[in-house]
Write a protein that binds this DNA or RNA. Structure first.
Lengths: 346, 346
DNA sequence: TTGCTCCTCACGTCACGTGAGGTGGC
DNA sequence: TTGCTCCTCACGTCACGTGAGGTGGC
């Protein structure tokens, strides 16, 4: 029944060294023959190795595979699935980055080939590309949404402190649905889907919805509330879907978590996944010109809540959307909170 | 004028360690102050570092950057451009691989999510993916086309030894053009473009053509003969263009260089870059059923020329094309040489 | 004398590949 | 005794990041 290491490696089309490496890292611990010290692989070991190799094939690092194996050992199928989806988000991010690198290289080649450009021009192109990558890398979950997740739905309707921006929460979300005006057969995406309150409204109208969020706990709650929605890890800066996938993209109370440099990148990402006649609708705290409205005080107010929150300036936002080929309309919901609807021009 | 290393790093938005690393690898050699031993960077050094960083940004390895810098120092612009295009081919290959890995992961998630599949199924999917990758990796230029390049156009018409397969060379190429029947405004791709004899015929009819070849010397000659053609490094297994790019794809006397496993992958790649109503036309040595024709003897004949050459079996080829959604027609040109025309069904 | 900038080793990263040198059973 | 399979170190890969420990000029 049991086999030596070379036979095991042959069956799995890998090498003995690789198998020993996984043992070294604590992913497997095969029995060893007491007299010879040879490793003896059981069916159970073979199964574990198959799983490890399958996950390695899709680029999962060994340290994370260890976590996945722990979840499997404890029989937690949902957690294991989450790890697969997380890996998908990672791969998609890399894939998009490679695409950008290729387009940078294409521009280098064009300039170099066509107008006898010097190498200085290439440097300039590379610098642009690096700047954008740095913006992306700065993205972190510094707001601890995993902690907020279980109390979110209650707090959002309480209206205390920072939560004041969610005044008229349910009516505002209804307004987003009204503005987007989805037709049956369309598919929408919500970025920063949270506990699914906005996306859920579209689902009720029979619209297919996908949602992304960087918080694992938010996603858990969202899936429990709306099992028919595709809710997966992801963020504004690397949307894990191909070009031209969605009829509309919505987001509520999330855009202000991005820095200004990140906002520009996010709009390009949204534009990428939107179909030619697509619509974007953003509901969030924003700034009219540079003035803050008195009872929200964001930006100039040193309250703890405003740390790492950057309301978009409306004129900048509409200008960016125009530049990307959209026609934008803005509407003030209440103090400090705006709704922006933009339609892609054909 | 000259600056210390930290100032240099700040200007280029990199780190002192990185600059020292490039010096260690021999890419730069800044002057050092005789008394303090500090590095002093001149404008010339800054320019070199900019170039290095630009090439690193597009993923070029340091050892290859050294070669590029040598070409630049010798003023060879054409060679430097070649390296950029080679890097493009590398990146495109990685990009396509990532896409495949993502689709493997998608299938894993689907199965896992939907029908309570076990991890054994995931292993199966991973194995398929690994097998295909191994086929791709096996591709090497073992025929030394760089050496053949300068004498190719002469030899191909000589008809000696292996070159016999090129009997009626010019008339056969004309036939390919006739069969493809290109309309003005279309864009075509030739895989294994060589010295450009086939693609050149399309160019003469005012058709835009792109060509790929893995031989640097072949590409040089091809560009000299047809400067208006886009001739870049690449091969059957990773065509460096996006999906749905070409109206037709042609290839002559090249398909037999692929193993059977590679041929299947190549057909999928061709299908990927072809537009919905696209055409494929292959002119090459092939086998009718399993029988070899007497005066070519490929396969059963132990002549040196047959090593690493694998004529496609016509029934297999047409079946594969049918499977991919094509309608295929075959025509015997002369002993052992066939022409296959396949049209994508809408 | 303190603080600053520079210097040169040298180890760590990640997932193994590739020997070197040695042992146990046929 | 020879050949085979297994074993355990341990160094190499690639492009740097990150200290440790030390020096020279203000």
């Amino acid at each position: 029944m049991d086999v030596w290491i070379h036979e095991m490696a042959r069956r799995l089309k890998t090498t003995p060294r690789t198998i020993r490496f996984y043992e070294e890292k604590g992913l497997i611990s095969p029995d060893k023959s007491p007299e010879s010290g040879y490793r003896q692989f059981s069916e159970q070991d073979a199964w574990r190795l198959q799983t490890i190799l399958a996950l390695r094939e899709v680029g999962m690092p060994v340290s994370r595979i260890r976590e996945v194996l722990n979840e499997i050992d404890q029989g937690d199928r949902e957690e294991a699935l989450y790890y697969l989806q997380l890996q998908r988000a990672v791969l998609y991010g890399e894939w998009l980055r490679l695409k950008r690198v290729i387009s940078t290289l294409d521009r280098m080649i064009d300039r170099f080939d066509a107008d006898q450009a010097g190498w200085d021009d290439l440097w300039e192109l590379a610098e642009q590309s690096r700047r954008a990558d740095r913006e992306r890398e700065k993205w972190r979950d510094i707001w601890d949404f995993d902690r907020i997740a279980p109390i979110f739905d209650e707090r959002v309707r309480s209206g205390e402190g920072w939560w004041r921006i969610h005044r008229d929460y349910d009516r505002s979300l209804d307004l987003v649905v009204e503005q987007v005006n989805p037709r049956s057969g369309e598919t929408g995406l919500e970025i920063g889907v949270g506990t699914g309150n906005l996306a859920g409204r579209f689902l009720q109208k029979g619209i297919r919805m996908c949602g992304i969020d960087q918080s694992r706990e938010m996603l858990k709650i969202c899936r429990r509330k709306y099992p028919e929605m595709t809710a997966v890890p992801g963020n504004f800066l690397a949307i894990p879907w191909p070009d031209d996938t969605f009829d509309f993209v919505v987001s509520s109370y999330a855009f202000h978590l991005l820095s200004d440099g990140q906002k520009a990148i996010a709009l390009e990402e949204i534009d990428r996944v939107l179909k030619p006649d697509g619509r974007v609708c953003l509901l969030d705290v924003m700034m009219d010109e540079t003035r803050m409205e008195d009872d929200v005080h964001f930006g100039t107010d040193p309250r703890e809540e405003m740390k790492n929150r950057f309301p978009a300036r409306i004129p900048w936002l509409t200008e960016e959307l125009e530049r990307l080929g959209y026609t934008a309309e803005t509407e003030r919901i209440h103090e400090g909170v705006w709704l922006v609807l933009a339609v892609k021009r054909a």
